[in-house]
Design a protein around this nucleic acid. Sequence first.
DNA 1: CCGCTTCTTGCACGTTAATGCGTACTATTC
DNA 2: GAATAGTACGCATTAACGTGCAAGAAGCGG
Lengths: 258, 258
Amino acid sequence: MLAEERTVAIQHRLKRDGRVVAADLAQEFAVSEDTIRRDLRDLAKAGLCRKVYGGALLVAGPAPKAGPIMQRSTLAADDKARLAVAAAGLIAPGQIVFLDAASTNLAIAGAIPRALPVTVVTNTPAIAVALSDHAHARVILLGGVFDAERGGCFGGAAIAALQQINADLFFVGACGLHGQIGVTAFDPAEAELKRAMAQQSTRLAVAATSDKIATIAPFRVAPADAVDHLVILPDADPQTVEMFQRLGTNVHLAGRPS
Amino acid sequence: MLAEERTVAIQHRLKRDGRVVAADLAQEFAVSEDTIRRDLRDLAKAGLCRKVYGGALLVAGPAPKAGPIMQRSTLAADDKARLAVAAAGLIAPGQIVFLDAASTNLAIAGAIPRALPVTVVTNTPAIAVALSDHAHARVILLGGVFDAERGGCFGGAAIAALQQINADLFFVGACGLHGQIGVTAFDPAEAELKRAMAQQSTRLAVAATSDKIATIAPFRVAPADAVDHLVILPDADPQTVEMFQRLGTNVHLAGRPS
DNA sequence: CCGCTTCTTGCACGTTAATGCGTACTATTC
DNA sequence: GAATAGTACGCATTAACGTGCAAGAAGCGG
């Protein structure tokens, strides 16, 4: 692994979780803690994080003053943006990602790092527009009759088109998320498309704002144990979170910069 | 293996993985690491990657300069808006309208009266987004691989989908418009889609800003006598306009409001 | 066909970056 | 105020780097 690559990964991690632990990083990247500390020290010197005893935290304040151009700062302004940055951190280079119609998914698209090569398959024109200026993002748009209410295309054509694609990761825009019932949606057509996407994807991720958690919508999309990754905010219902953890879901807490 | 061939392969790999390791490349292409380093150095000098210790990383996109469509559409905002209003006036209630990818067409979509019931078929996600809040506009989106440069989808899937539809009116986004040559486009894929749309539409309309008039782009879309309606600004080249009038085209002059 | 140039490649060299370890220091905890 | 965990510093080692140079291949003119 390249050194620079590692520091990028650490920044990614920082944005995703809001904090990093030196010892964990050392084990994960198979380097000594010294090296990690050096990385963190450099990042802190560049104003990209705040070094603390045992690790580092996401810098809270305004944009780092040093950066002249400072690429679009994905500094998480509000909850949804933080969630989106954390969720985007799950995407590995070169992966194929499904993003269905949801405001959270639009935020995730906006949080994809500009240097990350990725193929995004979506039924949401707004996501395609949001990714127009990502030089390394390829976008495949699922067409059909556009549902202005939900902001996406849900026809049979969209489903038929996506069934030709095998994705690595599907961020399902959840209308409801419950520890026993699983992922649910408000609309039958929406639910059908989500189910099709889930079937064509290796992994399933849910990035849920706290108001969605522990709620149930009428139409089932996927059972709780099908959720591979769950990205949540600190104030998410702990009981639901625990339930998912017991099912083997990887839970990611979108960090709050203090 | 030729040198240039190798550098192309390296770029390919960069784009795919977001990073390359010099040692791996050296082994894969059976050359010394020195040679790989030289390649990477040249690529970096050309701005195609970022050289780091041990390899190279994909460079982040150059600038967040908003989508190309947006950029173009802000140029002559007033003129374009007047043109769009006049063009939108050609749409009768209940009609089915093709709008392909063009900044003028985006403006036309925005100029469609909210009370007008219409079905818009487009390959441009930005148009779908613009029409989201039109309660009486039904939008059918043509999907496929999204071309960020042009802001639309141009694949065979888009053409196949639109060929199932018979429209009343097609606003062709013209890259060039000439009294003898007719409508032309800059891109072959773009031209092919435009031709397919023209074939599926009863009438063909061109709303052209004055800089497009009396110019020719490389790829032919439709002959001049196929244009049923021409919407222009007052300062359009009078010779070209007259030529179209002689061919039976209805010429509409976008009124100057003030 | 022969010399010439140009380009690419690999190798040898000294230089620099990155890492891990030992040691001494400092923060945190109880 | 120890005990513990984390940190800073210096140093040695390794890997990667840049440069200069020479060998070989391809192109060119005579």
